[in-house]
Amino acid sequence: MSRAPAIEAFDVSRTYELDGVSVPALRGVSLTVAAGDYVALTGPSGSGKSTLMHLLGGLDRPSGGRLVIGGREVGTLSAPELARLRNETIGFVFQAFHLLPRTSAVDNVALPLVYRGVGARQRRERAAAMLGRVGLGHRLHHRPNQLSGGEQQRVAIARALVTDPTVLLADEPTGNLDSTTGAAVLELLERLNVESGVALVMVTHDAEVAARARRRVAMRDGVVVTDSATDGGGGA
């Protein structure tokens, strides 16, 4: 692929201050997410994969090293600039869906467009079209509590993709779903990865799920221990 990498991390570290004690969560991670990539991020809890996920999504800033998202140096961005970067380049899918209660599916999906300043009418059109793509064209005006878990996660996926991001970050997207529903959601994510070329980075515990990714990154104690891309001789 000739396109510029979606995300590049060079020796990125992240340290939390807890009651005056420095707790290192990441100890120097270098990783490149190419456009259209499909990466599974694995590791035991406490390995730093969630921290890395937050950094890759621009929700947090590194304590050390360089992090470049969509060609922009995260360390130099102000909070509003970072918010805009997230809005334009990143889509998030969470284990717990994080849909707004008492808000229809279409309005949930349209939410990122609100912060992009898109008018109400156009927002709804784009959100409805996106819901159609995830197979929920008949559920536009249902509220989250009227939808099944799988449907809720599909609404969340539509919300993540409505802004046309370059990277989709999914944190245990099937963790709250039964295996059948989970498999369907996974297939949807993979289909969207292929169809729209959005890079898919997925945190998962599930070895079977991880095995489906084109690239597997395993973490332990705040460092990357294996990266199938570099192991295979590709990558950075």
């Binding site: 929700l59 918010a83 997230r86 939410l111 912060y115």
Partner: peptide
């Protein structure tokens, strides 16, 4: 709090 976190994740600025 979760709603605020989500809004921020999808691009809400602190000011918004």
């Amino acid at each position: 709090t979760r709603e605020i976190g989500l809004r921020k994740a999808v691009g809400a600025r602190p000011r918004d």
